[in-house]
Amino acid sequence: METFIKQYTTTKLTDLELIEIPKIKDSRGNLAVIEKECIPFEIKRVYYLYDVPSDAFRGGHAHKELFQFLIPLSGSFEVRLKDGEEERLVSLNKPDKGLLITPGIWREIENFSSGSVCLVLASDVYDEADYIRNFDEFLLFKGL
């Protein structure tokens, strides 16, 4: 298991991916579909963030092994990402585009618009041992 975790100490922001979710357009509205070919992991947990005040932020952690796919079902929000050397801010505001976050990347979700909903698909069930909640510990994990 340590070897598996070790591979994520080298992940970079370039490993992140904005993925277009297949959609079916219709005069009655659009239908977006997420099937196993859409994201590179089996979904084992689904949760969503909503009613987040615009001045609040969520996240503030990294994962050792967990992959996440964030989708703005409604409204918009920004995801601040750090790999220990670089930082990037990604705006999500279309429900047919999601952000794939690999393990070993620090994330903070902020600037939620009124009525926004962030859907998160995760590669595993909740495991507190997988979280890195302190940025200095994150930098140690990354070997920086």
Rank of each mutant, 00 (worst) to 15 (best):
P40W: 09
D124C: 13
L73A: 10
V90H: 12
L66G: 09
P53K: 13
L100T: 07
S123C: 03
E20H: 08
I5Y: 05
T102R: 14
A129I: 03
V120F: 03
E42P: 05
Q68V: 07
E20D: 14
K142G: 03
E128I: 11
A62I: 09
E2H: 13
L66F: 07
E86G: 11
R88Y: 03
Y131L: 00
Q68D: 12
G59I: 06
I132M: 04
D136L: 12
Q7L: 13
L13D: 00
L99P: 03
S76C: 07
E108G: 06
K94N: 14
V79L: 04
T14Y: 01
V79G: 00
D127C: 09
Y131A: 08
D51P: 00
D15P: 09
L49G: 02
A129M: 07
T9G: 10
K64D: 01
F112G: 08
Q68N: 12
D83E: 07
Y48I: 06
V33K: 15
T3S: 15
L73M: 13
V52Y: 06
K23A: 06
K36G: 14
D96L: 05
L81G: 05
E17I: 02
V33Y: 10
N93A: 12
T3F: 13
G59W: 09
R80E: 14
L89M: 12
I21V: 10
E78R: 14
L49P: 09
S114Y: 09
E42N: 14
G84C: 06
F69K: 04
F141K: 03
I34P: 02
D55T: 13
L121K: 10
L73W: 06
R133P: 07
S114C: 06
P103Y: 04
S114L: 12
D55V: 11
